[in-house]
Design a protein around this nucleic acid. Structure first.
Length: 257
DNA sequence: ATGGTAGCCTTGCTA
């Protein structure tokens, strides 16, 4: 069995204790991190190595940054999403671990709509779709894991009307996300959970966590070969309730490999 | 209409 997880930690330095606690209790074989918010030189590799995990890092000062933690060392590491000539933002890291080709994804937020930020989001999603096609064609066990900054349907947000014009919910955003589904990637959570209003992110403001007013934007997209092996998947809400929590909580799945 | 929170690192940006 291989357990794969994703977690936007909103600064690895601020969240190191939470991450170490979660690794110890959840024991994932693979954990994709987003928003580590530091260069690789500042990443707490030593502490994570002591906890039994290797770390592959694509860092960036202050913003963004992704990493892959794994019990087995990673092979064939790809740093950055192909096709991004001159793209400085650290948002994509891909590697093979324990028979799984995994991608740690921090997809651009895109707000406000109507600015270059939204254009960048849609262009980034088009690039992701092009690269995802090559992953599908490779017929590997593959998991796209990360903060997609996409609310797939109105069942995945507490107030769809209020969020209708947000970059995370816009029809163009959802259509780009569905391109990944149409080419054969499967939303792991929805394979085993039909219930609406299950969230992976709650804003720090306005008591969103206390009122369970969140969004489901952290996803595990499985290639057909991975989906065939899916035995369990869930969102672990517990870390979101801790003191000094990230605004996101881990999503995990188990593959029978 | 505004500001509410958090992290980074400034005097604002990103989310």
């Amino acid at each position: 069995m291989v357990k794969v997880a994703t977690w936007n930690v909103n600064s690895i330095k601020a969240r190191l204790g939470h991450v170490l606690d979660w690794l110890e209790t959840a024991k994932p074989d693979l954990l994709c991190l987003q928003e580590i918010k530091c260069p690789a030189t500042d990443f707490p590799t030593l502490e994570l190595t002591s906890a039994g995990y290797h770390a592959e890092i694509l860092g960036q000062r202050a913003y963004n940054g992704v990493a892959i933690l794994s019990r087995e060392p990673a092979r064939d590491v790809l740093r950055g999403l192909p096709g991004g000539d001159g793209d400085e933002q650290a948002r994509y890291l891909e590697a093979t671990v324990a028979g799984v080709r995994v991608a740690a994804i921090y997809l651009p937020n895109g707000n406000p709509v109507g600015t270059d930020k939204y254009d960048y989001k849609l262009a980034w999603m088009a690039r992701l779709a092009r690269h995802a096609r090559t992953l599908i064609d490779s017929e590997q066990v593959c998991v796209l894991a990360g903060d997609f900054n996409v609310v797939p349907t109105d069942d995945d947000v507490y107030d769809p009307v209020a969020w209708r014009d947000d970059a995370l919910c816009r029809p163009e955003t959802r259509a780009q996300f569905r391109r990944l589904l149409h080419m054969g990637f499967i939303d792991a959570f929805r394979v085993l959970h039909a219930e609406p209003h299950r969230y992976s992110f709650w804003d720090y403001q306005q008591g969103r966590w206390l009122r369970d007013q969140g969004l489901r934007i952290d996803h595990l997209l499985l290639s057909p070969q991975a989906a065939d092996r899916l035995v369990a998947v869930d969102i672990d809400r517990e870390p979101r309730g801790c003191d000094k929590a990230s605004d996101h909580t881990p999503v995990w799945c188990e593959l029978a490999l």
